[in-house]
Simulated assay, not measured.
Amino acid sequence: MKVNQPVRVTMVGGGSWATALVKILSENNVSVKWWLRKATDAEHIKKFGHNPSYLSDVQINTRKVKVCTKIRDSVRDSDYVVLAVPAAFVADALKGLKPEHLSGKCIISAIKGMIPDANQLVTDWVSEQYNIPAERMSVIAGPCHAEEVALEKQSYLTIASPDAICAENVANLLRCRFVQTTPVDDIYGIEYSAVMKNIIALACGITRGLGYGDNFQAVLVSNAMQEIKRFVDAIYPKHRDLSGSAYLGDLLVTAYSPFSRNRTFGTLIGRGYTIQSAQAEMNMIAEGYYAVKSIHAINQQVEVDMPITNAVYKILYEKSAPAGAMNRLKEVLT
């Protein structure tokens, strides 16, 4: 990686996590093309140097960051492409791109969700659709909330790739004065864990909305860690320490933090909101809502014991009453 020449990065997405990642990248010797769907937001950033829709207090360094609303223009000449849109919208965001437009580039997924209906991890879907070799794929994992990055609070990221050089290069891109990064090779374990922790956060929110206390939530999260291990080991057997920050740490911050949109969504469901009204109240995507359907479908094949995931699925997709579903769940937790 050249020291004197800025690394060229494309950021795909205009939400809070994309905004936070742009801020992190701007701390380093990086030139960013930032693709946003909304032309009004793009014009606002050009004029005022901040995103009017998300993390509006974050000042954007417009000397290093150029906004763009045409996806082909945004990826042209880039070395890295970071995907930071909700998983349900990845296909739409990349519409118009062909494999040759991403040829030779490293693709970084900052998405903690699954492609709906296809029931695929984002990395698998992108690799398949655009012929990206595995050694050019990586994922960004937490524990890290966009809101705390905006406040420049000390944060930690784990970068996973099957290729050690790719993981190290991406880790270097994102390491700055308030963010520590660690490269690892367990891309599937980390990506599945990141998907599942959103489902667990939904469960935590639902119980909070129903009036359960901290004692129950502690039991729920400890059982969830075992559930994640059973599932990930069945899908992708590998020696891994799930007490690491990319696994347990990411689960804890998502399950407990008031910044967690999945926990917030679950809390609204527990309080009696419909799915539609909860989504309207938040005005943001809770990845766990889509992910639980995909994980439930995958588990029909591997048949792992997943009582927490099953309870959330029944509430969100089979219209089970939250109180009844959680009453049944508490009988099987230990």
Rank of each mutant, 00 (worst) to 15 (best):
V3D: 15
P6E: 15
G14P: 06
L21H: 09
V22K: 05
L25T: 10
V32Y: 07
R37D: 08
A39C: 10
T40M: 10
A42G: 10
H44V: 10
G49K: 02
P52R: 07
D57N: 07
V58R: 00
Q59T: 12
T62V: 13
T62D: 03
K64P: 00
V67D: 01
V67W: 00
V81S: 08
A84K: 01
A87E: 04
A88E: 10
F89K: 11
V90I: 15
D92A: 15
L94I: 12
K95T: 12
L97Y: 06
H101R: 03
I107N: 01
I111C: 08
G113K: 02
L121H: 05
L121D: 06
V122H: 07
E128G: 09
Q129T: 15
A134F: 07
E135C: 14
R136W: 04
M137H: 05
S138Y: 03
C144H: 00
E148S: 04
K153N: 03
Q154D: 00
P162H: 01
D163C: 13
A171G: 07
L173W: 03
F178Y: 15
T181W: 01
V184Q: 02
I187A: 05
G189A: 07
K197T: 04
N198H: 01
A203D: 00
G205A: 05
L210I: 10
G211T: 09
D214E: 08
N215T: 11
A218T: 11
A218Q: 01
L220Q: 05
M225N: 04
K229W: 01
V232Q: 02
H239G: 03
R240L: 13
L251M: 11
T264N: 06
G270T: 01
Q276S: 14
S277Y: 02
A278S: 12
Q279T: 10
A280G: 06
A280L: 13
E281I: 08
M282L: 15
I285L: 14
A291M: 11
N299G: 14
N299H: 08
Q300Y: 07
Q301L: 14
E303T: 12
V312T: 11
L316A: 10
Y317E: 09
S320Y: 08
N327G: 14
